[in-house]
């Protein structure tokens, strides 16, 4: 059996099917992303895994435990970081970790956790006096204080400034390297691309794609674009002869060549042979963003 297995998960709120037959497996030690637009059913899916909601049908197994039947046991090994969950304003960082640590049989060393999350200087600071990024890091620390085998992180970096986001990403990689399997819910493409080993794209309650970030973009199209400003004029035919090139377009001094395979190599070597220098050379590959739009027909709202 897979480390984590979700099969045919269905959850409705009234007549609205928030999750409509979601299935995926997560391997031990990976960072598995769940990506999708707002309201796609991402959070409901992980809430069923965390044991916060009862599913209507389907099955969930985390290391052989069912969140509904084995709730207390599962919660010993699964740490959760929730969207928009706060602590009492006057609770201090070290007290919060001490309190939440007392809930678990196994415990991570709170001092090391505080240090590794960069909260060392904030031990005695009450929650209400922490910055948004620090509150978020404390929330991650609380998800890890029970030394979990699995961590579910929901909208981890929403509301953080760019530097805090990058720091948080480094942190998540460290956590994975320490052997924790991570389910990461996000609606940020760059975050998914940077962190996830594999990811499921969920839209309208269904998994519409499931692959590695590279596999998702390649699956949509392997088309590339090379854009440059030539030092001397040349006829289109020069490049169109190449098997890699599909199309050539010009806009002002700029030339845009579309094609497949080793396009950049092919184009630059032909230009070099004709002593044309390609200035402002850029290669554009399909991003996960483009793949997402191609798969779901929607763009993510940031």
């Amino acid at each position: 059996m897979a480390f984590i297995e979700v099969r045919d998960l269905v959850k409705s709120y009234g007549s609205f099917r928030a999750v409509d037959g979601v299935s995926f497996t997560v391997e031990e030690g990976e960072i598995f992303g769940i990506l999708g637009p707002n309201g796609a059913g991402k959070t409901t899916t992980v809430e069923c895994i965390e044991g916060l909601r009862e599913r209507d049908s389907g099955s969930i197994s985390v290391m052989g435990l069912d969140p509904e039947k084995d709730g207390p046991e599962l919660k010993q090994i699964l740490g959760s970081q929730l969207q928009e969950s706060r602590l009492p304003d006057k609770l201090r960082v070290d007290e919060a970790l001490d309190l939440y640590g007392s809930f678990y049989r196994r415990r991570a060393d709170p001092n090391r956790l505080i240090d590794s999350l960069g909260l060392g200087a904030k031990r005695k600071t009450p929650f209400g006096k922490l910055s948004g990024g620090q509150q978020q890091r404390l929330s991650i620390a609380l998800a890890l204080v029970g030394a979990p085998r699995v961590a579910v992180l929901d909208e981890l970096t929403t509301g953080l400034d760019p530097q805090a986001r990058r720091d948080t990403w480094d942190l998540i990689e460290q956590v994975r390297d320490s052997g924790v399997t991570i389910i990461l819910v996000t609606h940020f493409m760059d975050e998914a691309e940077r962190l996830c080993d594999r990811l499921a794209i969920i839209d309208s309650g269904k998994v519409v794609a499931l692959d590695t970030p590279g596999g998702l973009t390649a699956g949509v199209s392997d088309e590339q674009r090379v854009r440059f400003r030539p030092s001397a004029p040349f006829p289109d035919a020069l490049l169109l002869e190449l098997p890699e090139v599909a199309e050539i377009a010009r806009s002002g001094p700029q030339v845009v060549v579309t094609g497949r395979g080793n396009l950049l190599q092919a184009v630059t070597s032909v230009l070099a042979r004709h002593h044309i220098v390609a200035a402002e050379l850029r290669v554009e590959q399909l991003s996960l963003d483009d793949a997402f739009v191609a798969i779901t027909g929607k763009s993510l709202e940031h």
Binding site: E50, G51, L52, P72, K75, Q76, L78, G79, S80, L82, E84, S85, R86, L87, P88, Y100, F103, Y104, R105, L142, G146
Partner: peptide, 16 residues
């Protein structure tokens, strides 16, 4: 306030 701020919900994800 604990309910509003999600303190109770946060606790529901723990064994306690």
């Amino acid at each position: 306030t604990y309910r509003e701020r999600g303190v109770l919900r946060r606790m529901r994800t723990t064994p306690v």
